[in-house]
Simulated scan of single mutants.
Amino acid sequence: MKNISIFLLSILLFSCQQKQTKTDSVSSSDSIVAKDSIIVKENKVENEQIGDTIFMNFKNEKDFYVAEGSLDSIHSRVYVKFKNEDLGELNGKITPAGGKGNIRFNQIISPDKSSDGPFGIDLKTNLEQKGNYVLVIGHSQMADNPFYGKFTVQLENKKK
Score class of each variant (00 low, 15 high):
N60I: 07
P118T: 06
E61S: 13
G120H: 05
K62Q: 15
N126K: 10
I121A: 05
H139M: 02
S27F: 14
V78Y: 01
N43H: 15
K150Y: 11
D63M: 11
K83E: 11
K81C: 04
R104W: 04
Y65L: 00
G88R: 02
S10F: 08
D112G: 02
F55G: 00
F58L: 10
E42M: 11
F7Q: 04
G69I: 02
K100Y: 09
G131W: 00
L8D: 08
P146I: 10
G131I: 04
A143F: 09
L12T: 11
R104S: 01
S31G: 03
V136M: 03
C16R: 10
N91S: 12
E46G: 06
N57Y: 07
I4P: 00
G138Y: 00
F151H: 03
V45M: 09
D36K: 15
I137D: 01
P96D: 06
T125H: 04
Y133F: 07
D36M: 15
A143G: 01
I137G: 03
N60K: 01
N106I: 12
L8A: 13
G99C: 07
I108K: 04
L13V: 15
F58Y: 13
G88I: 05
R77G: 01
K62H: 07
Q49S: 03
N157W: 02
M1D: 12
S27H: 12
L9H: 06
M56A: 11
I94P: 00
